[in-house]
């Protein structure tokens, strides 16, 4: 995963809104804060963000409204032109693409799901899902077949001829998801896809989404303002504030070692035991002698609670997905996480 080159590589990306942002950015003294920039009459959507998304990874960008998370993801797909820095997708600088190349990239590589669905009201479910295929000129039969396939995938079969307004919110978002998957994209952007849905449906859709991801293994950039959602889904989380990334790390590390006070505020209320995995606490073997059965590294501390309480070993071996020993975990450290002691 780490050896192959990243799918998306953003370096020092700036996005500034205002009368003449390029000129402003080039003349700006470094280190100006969000408020300083606002006082100058500009809005900093994205401030000096450098981030990589690896192939097959799910990066969740988390932040409150106005933190720049939606702006950042729109920079990745060049729905927004960035003001400074570079963004490479599969090694290609997207800012140097012409309109044709850009359209080709979107037609073949990218899919996006929107918060309020962004469905075309005058098209049926089938025609909405087939829309990207139609745009790239696929013939009617091929696109119909493919559209039916993805509609089935998201569990909407039987509703192909419905119009968006005849569907519930959850169903509409399934259409949005199906549409974004129709072209078999390599990169999947989801912009707060579940926040317009009510809590019960949201949970159901998250499960559905995890199922799809398990099956498809796409590279995903997922945006949310819901920290629980981020923890539940992410391989890595990037927490944004005022256009800048405060911390970008795995959920375990964010919960265990929040980099800034802002991040710490989010993690305070979280039941760490439900987030932190055994592998997150594991340290390298370093020749330590191991005894007894290994515990599953992909289990959360909460799931291991019974073992942790009953086991008498001070050092527990931790196994990875393949069952090989990846390191050892101090029982006391795990108990601290579980019981909140420190």
């Amino acid at each position: 995963m780490t050896t192959s080159s990243p799918v998306i590589q953003a370096k020092n990306v700036w996005k500034i809104f205002g009368p003449s942002p390029e000129k402003y950015l080039s003349g700006m003294t470094p280190g100006r804060s969000f408020d300083d920039i606002r006082a100058d009459g500009y809005i900093a959507g994205v401030r000096d963000v450098s981030i990589e998304v690896a192939r097959g990874e799910m990066l969740v960008i988390m932040g409150l409204s106005g933190s720049g998370k939606s702006t950042l993801v729109r920079c990745f797909s060049r729905l927004h032109d960035i003001t400074g820095g570079t963004i490479e997708v599969d090694g290609q600088d997207i800012m140097s693409m012409n309109e044709r190349e850009l359209i080709d990239m979107r037609r073949n590589k990218m899919g996006m799901v929107f918060q309020s669905f962004g469905l075309l009201p005058h098209r049926t479910v089938l025609d909405n899902v087939a829309f990207p295929l139609e745009m790239r000129g696929q013939d009617k039969h091929a696109r119909r077949e493919r559209a039916l396939e993805v509609i089935e995938l998201v569990g909407l079969n039987g509703r192909e001829d419905y119009f968006p307004r005849e569907l519930s919110g959850g169903q509409q978002q399934r259409v949005g998801i199906a549409r974004s998957l129709a072209i078999e994209p390599d990169i999947w952007f989801l912009d707060e896809p579940f926040s317009a849905l009510d809590p019960l449906i949201r949970r159901e859709m998250q499960d559905e989404f995890l199922r799809l991801q398990e099956m498809l293994g796409k590279t995903i950039v997922f945006i949310t303002h819901d920290f629980d959602e981020a923890l539940r889904l992410a391989d890595r989380i990037a927490i944004m504030k005022d256009g800048a990334v405060e911390q970008c790390d795995t959920p375990d590390k964010i919960v265990m070692n929040p980099a800034t006070e802002y991040v710490a505020k989010f993690t305070e209320e979280i039941d760490k035991a439900r987030v932190v995995h055994a592998r997150g606490l594991a340290t390298p073997l370093n020749g330590a002698a191991i005894e007894g059965a290994a515990i599953d590294g992909n289990a959360t501390i909460h799931e291991l609670a019974r073992i942790l309480v009953n086991d008498t070993r001070e050092i527990l071996p931790v196994a990875d997905k393949q069952g090989e020993i990846m390191g050892v975990m101090q029982r006391q450290a795990a108990l601290d996480v579980l019981l909140g002691g420190a």
Binding site: R107, G118, L120, E134, R179
Partner: peptide, 27 residues
């Protein structure tokens, strides 16, 4: 026309004419 519908059109790879014909005018 809602910006999300516009963005959905762009992300579907619409050319300018396709945007107008299939996204803006119907919306």
């Amino acid at each position: 026309v809602s910006p999300e519908v516009v963005e959905a059109g762009k992300m579907s790879g619409c050319s300018r004419w396709q945007m107008l014909r299939h996204v803006y005018v119907p919306a």
